[in-house]
Simulated assay, not measured.
Amino acid sequence: MTIGKVGTLEVDFVASKADEIVYYQVSATIMDEKTKERELRPLQSITDNYPKYILTMDNTVFNDFSGIKVKNIIDFLLE
């Protein structure tokens, strides 16, 4: 697992295994519009088709922003 950079933007974690890559942003909450935009921006700037996730403590009905999945961190850890 590494940290990724896209220009001046940073992706919190980049997990890679064999020929698979998964990108993760972690935020306590994305309920604030500015925070949501800040967390989405680096993932939106990545042009490949590998999975992209935002992990948060939020329980939200919005779980997909143009292909970027939003998951509750506790649910993610229990999977």
Rank of each mutant, 00 (worst) to 15 (best):
Y24K: 07
N49H: 09
I74K: 15
D19V: 04
Y50K: 14
P51L: 09
N59R: 05
D58Y: 07
D58L: 04
A15S: 08
M1R: 00
V61E: 02
T56W: 03
K5T: 11
I68S: 06
N59H: 09
Y50Q: 15
F62H: 11
K69Q: 07
E37L: 06
G7P: 04
E79A: 11
P42K: 07
M31Q: 09
T47C: 03
V14T: 04
D48V: 03
D19T: 06
K36H: 12
M57F: 15
L77D: 08
Y53A: 04
D64K: 15
T29L: 11
V14C: 00
L55D: 05
R41H: 10
Y53E: 02
N49F: 05
D12Y: 02
T35S: 13
T2M: 06
V14W: 00
V11E: 00
V70L: 13
F65V: 12
Y50I: 12
I74G: 10
E20C: 02
N49E: 13
M1C: 00
K5A: 08
P51Y: 09
D58P: 03
R41F: 11
V70A: 08
L9Y: 13
A15M: 05
E37M: 06
Y23R: 11
N63H: 05
I3F: 04
M31A: 07
T60N: 10
T35D: 03
Y50W: 14
S16C: 07
K52T: 00
D32R: 15
F76V: 10
A15E: 02
A18P: 01
L77R: 03
E39F: 05
E20R: 06
N72D: 03
A18F: 09
I3R: 10
Y23F: 14
E20D: 11
E33N: 08
P51Q: 09
S27K: 08
F13I: 07
I46A: 13
P51V: 13
L40R: 09
E10V: 03
E39W: 02
T47I: 10
F76A: 12
D12C: 01
E33D: 08
D58I: 05
F65D: 00
A18K: 14
F62D: 11
G4V: 01
N72P: 05
F65G: 04
L77F: 09
A15D: 04
R38Y: 04
S45K: 06
T60I: 13
D12P: 02
K34M: 13
P51C: 12
D64L: 12
E20S: 11
F62V: 14
K5S: 13
V6A: 02
R38L: 06
L40N: 14
T47D: 08
E20L: 08
K52I: 00
R41T: 14
V22L: 00
T60Q: 06
D75K: 11
L78Q: 15
A18Y: 09
Y50R: 12
G4N: 00
N72F: 05
D64P: 11
F62K: 12
P42W: 06
M57W: 14
K17S: 15
I54W: 03
L43H: 07
I30Y: 02
K52H: 01
D12H: 01
D64F: 15
V26S: 00
D75T: 13
F13W: 01
R38K: 10
D19C: 08
F76G: 09
P42G: 08
N63Q: 12
T8K: 08
I73D: 05
E33K: 13
